[in-house]
Design a protein around this nucleic acid. Structure first.
Lengths: 130, 130
DNA sequence: ATTATAATAAGAATAGTTCTTAGTAAGGAG
DNA sequence: CTCCTTACTAAGAACTATTCTTATTATAAT
């Protein structure tokens, strides 16, 4: 299907590109609709899916809250706090050797990976060290 | 809260322990209700959450289809086929050094990790090599 | 300019999950 | 063993997240 450009899709892409963390569809909807521009929720969902398909953004499943969207498409790791359920990027180096190792052992065709670390975030650590 | 034993929870736990792959709440519901035992869907959901909380089973978010449940609580890796959306365990060795590396670099308290590999499964590879 | 078709808004529909309520069962205390 | 407290269940209502429907509008090729 040949895609036509649309003001709404451009706005959504720019909004996601401007975010410094992950956000859900609902949060993106709220964020955009606080400005002058009004976009319907169904349009937000439809375009987030289209943009993810176009590899302009990345759709990530959050361990507790459905899907969130990320401006970074390159594979990268995440940290999940099992206490407060917060979820954030981890920017350590990409371990290509894991892909090779797993491909060799499983015979699957592996293109990339992303690792989800679990633990306790700094805010929760402080809270529980009292 | 003091938990009481219940026939339903035991059945659900045994069912999950007997599965050889991941299953959704709905699939577990269907599986159990094909036998003589009838358990309501709300009870399935409630107990899956309780069992995950009790660390008897593991609740995992599937990249495209909500949550699935796994009899294995120990952290382990997964493979996701971007073509057919299948999702399976990968049993390579646990890389503890990743936890240490990331903990050192981020100052977060890291307890474990699990890696999600993406690529093309064997079935899809064959299909597209024609 | 015309025309084909992708896009939109708005709300209806669907799917997945949790909540409510009234009744049942587990298991500790007497 | 019986009583009593409280966690448990079934059934369906309610809620939440997401997708679909329909009529209309916008994009871009001819």
């Amino acid at each position: 299907m040949i895609r036509k450009q649309s003001k709404q899709r451009d706005l959504i892409l720019n909004y996601v590109k401007s975010m410094d963390a992950h956000a859900s569809a609902e949060e993106i909807f709220d964020g955009i609709n606080q400005t002058d521009e009004k976009i319907s929720l169904a349009t937000i969902y439809r375009n987030l899916n289209i943009l993810a398909e176009m590899d302009e953004i990345k759709k990530i499943s959050h361990p507790t809250y459905g899907y969130v969207y990320d401006k970074t498409c390159e594979p990268h790791d995440h940290f999940y706090c099992t206490e407060c359920k917060s979820f954030m990027d981890v920017n350590t180096k990409y371990h290509e050797e894991l892909d090779n190792e797993t491909q060799k052992e499983t015979k699957l065709r592996i293109y990339s990976h992303s690792t989800l670390f679990e633990g306790i975030c700094n805010t929760c650590l402080k809270k529980y060290s009292h």
